[in-house]
Every structure is written in structure tokens, then in C-alpha cells.
Simulated scan of single mutants.
Amino acid sequence: MNEVHERILARADELAAEAPLSDEQGSLTDTTADILRSCGVMRMLQPKEFGGMEASPVDFFRTLFDIGVQSSSAGWVAGVVGVHAFEMALMDHTLQKEIWADDADTWIASPYAPLGRATPVEGGYRFTGRWPFSSGTDHCTWIILGGLIVDADGAPVPGGSRHFVLPRADYEIIADSWDVVGLRGTGSKDIVIRDAFIPEHRVFDPTPMEDGGLADSVGRGDSPLYRMPFHPMFTAGITTATIAMARGALTAFTEAMQHRVTARGVKTADNPHQLAVLGRASADLQAGEVQLFGDIEWMWDKAQRDERFSAEDRLRVRRNQVRISRRAVDVVDELFLNAGGSALRSDSTLQRYWRDIHAALNHASNNADPIYQAYGLNSFGNPLPKTVLF
């Protein structure tokens, strides 16, 4: 087992205890962030050159899973922020030095939605925009934001979608912008930028990362980690966090069964119906876990052989990911429906997982139909929608 994974397991009870406190304050508690930081979670996919571990993605996502079982929000933030180190390793080397040279534990936020507008100027761009859903942003000091390059009239330039990287001094976090019913502890607040200058070396075209082929051209070809395909890596973080919530919910349901007695005086642990619910949920959840980690292991093996990832490869993984997430939500719905009225209480662990996993399903990476459609189109040799990222 990876050393970071071992450290996380040793502090599992602390993560679980902090989960409701993160919900209450609307962002990860400092204690939760300190656990993730001291265990080295965000450095697992970071280059060794800058104090990272270049761990295998299999180790990273298994560690992420066990974080999310204890705390939905911690698992979510660890996945999103943790994968940013993977992308940063493929960016300009000067930028990597700016971020990590003085502090290997620097965290990088996002989001990638292309909501910013960048006007070319000498040496770079003037950048403006507002973005929702910047998970874990209070604990980050840099950010990657999606945007479009525009011409002098403000019209988007064809092929001008880019990722823009900025330090904390160049953007504003809107403090009261994360008032939600689920994943409250992620603190996924809005980001605002008003006419900031972005030098050219902090602007990145993400397209070459899609098939895993960028590593060689940026000097990272000796590490199979950076030959992994970007979108299935990022979305694996979302899927892993989602199914971890279902595992946490199943644990909470099982623990409640041990003590609950029905209105007819029957122990839930002796109730055939409740036992059947537990059996179905356990089987469906384990199937999802096997499929999720099986795909990650398959991608890792392929990257170690220095093979590129075709559209068919990436779409198959994405098809599986969105289906895994859907099944995980269905599991939690059935558990919650059969947990009795006590599950409705605000201090119920099960209701928190229920709220969190429904919030998770609203993430764009868990939006299933476009992925299913793209998979079908590709299966019959038809052109794929340009709006679908995979």
C-alpha cells in the first residue's frame, strides 16, 4: 500500500469527525486541510522535481476513495485539487517553478469552464470573467481557469479555448457564493477576475493532453504518469469521490441496522426486507468499485507501455464512469428510502451522504447522456460532438 494511503487510513476517524464541521462552515475545516496536506495527498501526482511523488494513479484514486468514505467533501476536494498537479506537470516549466519552488505543498484550484474572456496584448492577455464551483478554493493559492481568446470585437477566436493560471493576488473569492444542499464542505465558491494580465507562459492549450501524448514534448516522457489521458484522469476523481460517498452511506446504513427496531418490534438486522436491501446495495456498489479501479489499472498499464489513448479508449472509460456514478446514487437512494424516519434528522450521517451524492451527480463530469451518445456515435464511425470532453 502507498505510504500516503497508509497515513490517510490512520487518520480516518479524524476525517469523519471533521465532516459535519466542514458542512457547517461551508468549506473544509483547517483540520481537514491539514490532514490532507500533512499526509501528502495533493503531492501524489506532482513531479518529483518539485517535491512530489509521481505516484501511480491507481494508488492516488484508491487513497482518494478512502478519504471520500469518511468525508464526502474532503474526498471531492482531494480529487479535484489533487489532479491539478498532474496537469501542471505538463505546463510551462517556468510556471511550475513559480508555483512549487518555494512551497511543494502549494494547492491549485480550478474550474475549467471556459467562462473567461482573454484579449491578446503584448506578452500575454488581459483576462476577465466569473466562474462558479471552485472546490477547495479557500485552501489554494493558485488557480487554473477556463477561458476563450477573443478578437478586438470580443468574438471568440476559433480554437481559442485555453486554461489560464493565476496567483491568489490576481483573483477574488466571493465569500457568500456557496449556499447549497449538498457537498457544502467543499466550499466551491465563485471566482471573479477583473482585467488581470496573464503572461503567455501561464496560458495553456489542454487539447494535446487528451490522448496522453503531450508528455514527450514537454520533457515528461520518462514518467508514465504523465502519459495518462487528461479528461479520464480528472473525471476519475469525480467518479471516485461519488462512489466513495455511496460506500460511506452503506457503512452508515449497516451500523444503523445493528440497533434499529421496527414499529412491530423486529430488529432491522433480522428483517428479511432490510437484509435484501443490504445485499443488493453491497453487490451493486462492489460492481462499481471493481469497474472503476479496473479501468484505472487498464489505463495505467497502457501508459506504462507508452501507448496513446484513442477516442474509443477514452469514451469506453467515460461511459463506465458515468454509469458507475448513476448506480452509486441509486444505491444510496434505496438505502435512504429504507433507513426509517431517523435518517431524516439533520445529525444523521446517512442523510448527509444522500445530499452529497445527489450534489455530486450534478457535476458536468457525471452528466451521462452526452457521453452515452458520443460513445454510440463513435461506435458507428460518426463524427463526435465538439462539446463533449473525453
Rank of each mutant, 00 (worst) to 15 (best):
W300R: 01
V218C: 03
D216M: 14
G51F: 13
H5P: 02
W100R: 02
A241K: 00
S56R: 07
V317L: 05
E98P: 05
A89E: 10
G26S: 06
R305L: 11
I173K: 04
S188Q: 08
I149H: 04
E200Q: 13
A249L: 06
H84K: 11
F50P: 00
A215M: 06
H259Q: 15
E210G: 09
E6P: 05
L45I: 09
P114I: 14
W300C: 02
Q304K: 15
L377S: 05
R264V: 12
C39R: 04
D59L: 13
I8M: 06
S188V: 03
R355V: 00
P232F: 11
V41M: 12
Q304N: 12
H139R: 12
E255D: 13
T119H: 05
V261E: 05
A359D: 08
F309D: 05
G187K: 00
P224H: 06
C39V: 11
Y125T: 00
E307Q: 14
V317N: 02
I8S: 03
I243C: 11
A109S: 13
N2S: 11
D205K: 02
F61W: 08
R327H: 05
A269L: 14
G136C: 08
A169Q: 12
W76T: 14
F234K: 00
A364T: 10
M42N: 06
E307Y: 07
K267R: 15
D211M: 03
P114L: 08
G147H: 03
G182E: 07
D105A: 10
V4Y: 00
A281M: 06
D195L: 02
I149S: 00
L21E: 11
D190Y: 13
Q321T: 14
Y372F: 15
I357P: 10
M88R: 07
L275T: 02
P199I: 11
V317S: 11
R43K: 15
E6L: 13
T254M: 07
F127Y: 10
G381M: 04
I198W: 01
S135A: 13
L250N: 05
V261M: 04
F61A: 04
A368N: 08
E255R: 11
V165I: 15
V203W: 00
R130F: 04
Q258F: 12
T387G: 12
Q274S: 15
G123P: 01
A368L: 09
E24Q: 15
A359Q: 04
T349A: 12
H201L: 06
D153I: 01
R130I: 15
R260Q: 12
Q25L: 14
Y226Q: 01
E172S: 07
H231I: 09
T235S: 08
V157A: 01
V58M: 10
Q286G: 02
I174N: 05
T235W: 02
T387W: 10
S110T: 01
P272E: 07
A89N: 10
G123T: 14
F309W: 07
P132V: 09
G146Y: 00
R260Y: 12
A33N: 10
